[in-house]
């Protein structure tokens, strides 16, 4: 009974985390970059939104500005990687650390800024879960629609090819570095947008928000794609799958809390889930695959690359 009672909240929060996971999907799956900026940029989105709301900025405008702030963080990571030659994973960690200071600065040195749901016209709040599900659902639908349109433009296609095969992309005149910066900008913009929605939903922005967000994002991606790839492996179905993955993750999360697991251990649980998803393909290949019969045509029979992106 308690579980059913918690369900609407889990769905609402799951939608928001699913949106964040779409940002992670763009960097991790499309660009083939494990971008750790996310843990910082989701918090940046929350901080920007909370402070702007406090200053009387309308909620819709504050989430757009939060998107821009996150995009800027992504661009910084992208430039650290492409212009300064820092490995992408380190570039993300560096930006994440910078963002901790930036986020504190945004919050005016406080570790928490509350949002008053009565003083502000919020897009969504936990006091009204059906309304929150509707609002979050509409925003998610708009983001998916815009991404669908974008990734099938001339520019968008090259963003996909950049992650899929950078050699081919360069040979076809694609500026791979520019695309990586652009893609990381879009990815972190979406992550920050989710952070802004989360702040409104919870009614506060906390400097520690978003720690481990990348792991939750990856969990949502793995859960979602494990289903959606079986239905139809196309772009929109994948994105919807990722959203579904976020919701499933939060339903499980709430269920586990109700079972009595202390919230302190939930990050461990998230990490184990992701580790398992990452390990399974490797274990299958390494220990459970059938002996391969050498193909008579050698490399010519190449079935293309498997498992990648």
């Amino acid at each position: 009974m308690a579980f059913l009672y918690a369900l609407p909240g889990a769905v609402a929060e799951g939608l928001i985390w699913g949106l964040m996971a779409i940002g992670v999907y763009i960097s991790y799956k499309i660009l083939d970059i494990a971008d750790l900026t996310v843990d910082g940029s989701i918090c940046t989105g929350a901080c920007v939104c909370a402070v702007l709301l406090g200053a009387g900025v309308p909620a819709w405008l504050s989430i757009l500005i939060a998107f821009a702030a996150g995009a800027l963080a992504g661009v910084v990571t992208g430039l650290l990687h492409t212009a300064l030659g820092i490995p992408s994973i380190l570039a993300g960690i560096l930006t994440q650390l910078m963002l901790y200071s930036v986020n504190l600065l945004i919050l005016g040195g406080k570790s928490l800024v509350a949002i008053d749901p009565r003083a502000n016209q919020l897009l969504l709040h936990m006091s009204n879960n059906p309304g929150a599900i509707l609002s979050a659902g509409i925003i998610v639908a708009v983001v998916i629609a815009v991404l669908y349109l974008f990734f099938y433009t001339e520019v968008g296609l090259t963003l996909k090819s950049t992650g899929d095969n950078p050699d081919m992309s360069r040979a076809q005149g694609v500026n791979v570095k520019f695309n990586q910066v652009l893609g990381l900008g879009i990815a972190n913009g979406i992550v920050a947008l989710a952070g802004a929605l989360l702040a409104q939903y919870k009614g506060s922005a906390n400097i520690n928000d978003g720690r481990g967000a990348i792991v939750i994002g990856l969990a949502a991606i793995f859960i979602g794609l494990s289903v959606s790839m079986k239905i139809k492996p196309n772009f929109v179905v994948s994105l919807i799958g990722v959203i579904g993955g976020g919701i499933v993750y939060y339903i499980v999360y709430n269920f586990v809390i109700l079972l009595g697991l202390k919230t302190d251990y939930l990050k461990m649980l998230s990490a184990i889930i992701v580790a398992l998803f990452l390990a399974v393909p490797y274990l299958q290949e390494e220990y459970f695959s059938k002996p391969k019969v050498p193909h008579p045509h050698g490399a010519a029979s190449g079935k293309g690359d498997d498992g990648h992106a």
Binding site: L157, K160, D167, M168, A171, G304, H308
Partner: peptide, 16 residues
Amino acid sequence: MKGTAPDMEIVENLAI
């Protein structure tokens, strides 16, 4: 494997 994007359609590769 180097000259084409494996996860994209034939027509998308040609369009790029």
